Simulated assay, not measured.
Amino acid sequence: MSLKFGHKIEIHAPGTVANLVCGFDILGFCLHEPCDIMELTLTDSGTVVIEPDPVYHLPTKPEDNVAGMPLLAIIEDHKEHKIGFHLKITKNIKPGSGIGSSAASAAGAVVGANHLLGHIFSKEELVQYAMLGEKVATGVKHADNIAPCIYGGITLIRSIAPLDIIPLASPELYVTIVHPQIEVKTSDARAILKKQIELKTAIKQWGNIAGLVAGILQKDYQLIGRSLEDYIIEPVRSILIPKFDEVKAKAKIAGALGGGISGSGPSIFMLSDHLETAKKIELSMQEIYDEINLSRHTYVTTINNEGVKIISSE
């Protein structure tokens, strides 16, 4: 391992959409926007130092921080080298947004560490480390945001134990997202889910998951649209999101192929095959939340096939 203490890099860590409606905990894709900016420096401190965040006041104690915990694990696994890290995060992905805020921090940290340490880890190993950050955030090691953030594009998590990630070829789709300015904690959104489902419901869900993956691989937009239906998670979680049903209905009228809750919410995403349509969907989303005077952020973006990116090095 070739080490250069004091080496600093700047990282773009993008947002992600997880679940893809019917693919709870197994499907996700990477976004071009929004994106966190991180600065990571290799040190000989033997620990992780995190600069205070003046906006969201995220934990600076590394074991309580979604980016700090994976870095601690890397340090522990390579303690013979006495490495450490200094981390600064500029959060543009609001925590609790449902657009992969915790995953961006965790994935950005491990990809950055890998760069500083001479690219000693595989992408799968990076996902394993970053999942420790998701456990800090939610209590559960899940990879449906982490994997697309690191691999880019769309990923299928066939299994967590053992980890089995399948990258899927991404069709050219536009993504319209509305983030109503409320917070839904992933841990809370998981707590309300049903623990048992009927077999007939599971069968319908399996059909949609298979149809969605087939539609993605075949670039069949109509099949993708037909498959974006959720009989298990969305009916429960949608009650946490103001005007969810209306947003979804009007987006489809505007031309959306389909969509639903991004991650655990409150953000809602919609897919379309033309930029003009994506902008019409954005306008319909904005109008709904303006009517009830609820602040919102909207994004019109595309699927990011690169994932976490190192943008400067010194």
Rank of each mutant, 00 (worst) to 15 (best):
residue 1 M to H: 14
residue 2 S to D: 14
residue 6 G to T: 07
residue 9 I to W: 04
residue 9 I to M: 04
residue 10 E to T: 13
residue 12 H to W: 13
residue 14 P to S: 00
residue 15 G to Q: 05
residue 15 G to W: 06
residue 15 G to T: 02
residue 19 N to Q: 02
residue 19 N to F: 05
residue 24 F to V: 07
residue 27 L to R: 04
residue 27 L to Q: 07
residue 28 G to Y: 11
residue 31 L to A: 07
residue 32 H to Y: 13
residue 32 H to E: 13
residue 33 E to K: 14
residue 33 E to N: 14
residue 34 P to R: 00
residue 34 P to D: 07
residue 35 C to I: 15
residue 36 D to L: 00
residue 37 I to T: 14
residue 38 M to R: 01
residue 41 T to K: 14
residue 42 L to R: 10
residue 46 G to C: 11
residue 48 V to L: 08
residue 50 I to K: 01
residue 52 P to M: 02
residue 52 P to W: 03
residue 53 D to S: 03
residue 57 H to Q: 13
residue 57 H to R: 12
residue 57 H to T: 10
residue 61 K to G: 05
residue 63 E to V: 09
residue 64 D to Q: 14
residue 64 D to Y: 08
residue 65 N to Q: 01
residue 68 G to S: 06
residue 68 G to V: 04
residue 69 M to Q: 12
residue 69 M to H: 08
residue 72 L to R: 06
residue 74 I to E: 03
residue 76 E to Q: 13
residue 79 K to Y: 09
residue 82 K to M: 10
residue 92 N to M: 00
residue 93 I to N: 05
residue 94 K to Q: 14
residue 94 K to M: 15
residue 105 S to W: 04
residue 106 A to I: 08
residue 106 A to Y: 05
residue 117 L to P: 08
residue 119 H to V: 03
residue 120 I to E: 11
residue 122 S to R: 14
residue 124 E to A: 11
residue 136 V to T: 04
residue 141 K to F: 00
residue 142 H to D: 07
residue 142 H to Q: 02
residue 143 A to G: 08
residue 144 D to A: 13
residue 146 I to N: 11
residue 150 I to Q: 09
residue 153 G to P: 01
residue 154 I to M: 06
residue 154 I to N: 01
residue 155 T to F: 09
residue 156 L to N: 10
residue 159 S to M: 07
residue 159 S to W: 05
residue 161 A to Q: 10
residue 163 L to R: 10
residue 163 L to P: 10
residue 164 D to N: 14
residue 165 I to S: 08
residue 165 I to W: 06
residue 168 L to Q: 08
residue 169 A to Q: 15
residue 170 S to H: 03
residue 170 S to K: 02
residue 172 E to C: 09
residue 176 T to A: 13
residue 177 I to T: 02
residue 181 Q to E: 15
residue 181 Q to G: 08
residue 185 K to V: 00
residue 186 T to S: 13
residue 186 T to V: 06
residue 187 S to K: 15
residue 188 D to Y: 12
residue 193 L to H: 00
residue 195 K to R: 13
residue 196 Q to Y: 12
residue 197 I to H: 14
residue 197 I to C: 09
residue 200 K to F: 09
residue 202 A to T: 02
residue 203 I to P: 04
residue 203 I to A: 03
residue 206 W to D: 10
residue 215 G to Y: 10
residue 218 Q to D: 15
residue 219 K to C: 12
residue 221 Y to P: 00
residue 221 Y to C: 11
residue 221 Y to I: 08
residue 225 G to N: 08
residue 225 G to F: 05
residue 231 Y to L: 07
residue 231 Y to G: 01
residue 231 Y to A: 12
residue 235 P to S: 05
residue 235 P to Y: 07
residue 238 S to Q: 15
residue 241 I to Y: 01
residue 243 K to C: 13
residue 250 K to Y: 12
residue 253 I to H: 08
residue 254 A to E: 11
residue 254 A to Y: 09
residue 258 G to V: 02
residue 259 G to E: 09
residue 262 S to P: 05
residue 263 G to K: 04
residue 267 S to D: 03
residue 272 S to C: 06
residue 272 S to D: 02
residue 277 T to K: 08
residue 278 A to T: 10
residue 281 I to S: 03
residue 282 E to C: 06
residue 283 L to D: 13
residue 283 L to R: 13
residue 293 N to A: 12
residue 295 S to H: 13
residue 296 R to N: 11
residue 296 R to P: 00
residue 297 H to C: 07
residue 297 H to L: 14
residue 300 V to Q: 05
residue 301 T to V: 04
residue 301 T to R: 03
residue 305 N to V: 13
residue 307 G to K: 02
residue 308 V to L: 06
residue 308 V to I: 04
residue 308 V to H: 04
residue 310 I to T: 00
residue 312 S to E: 07
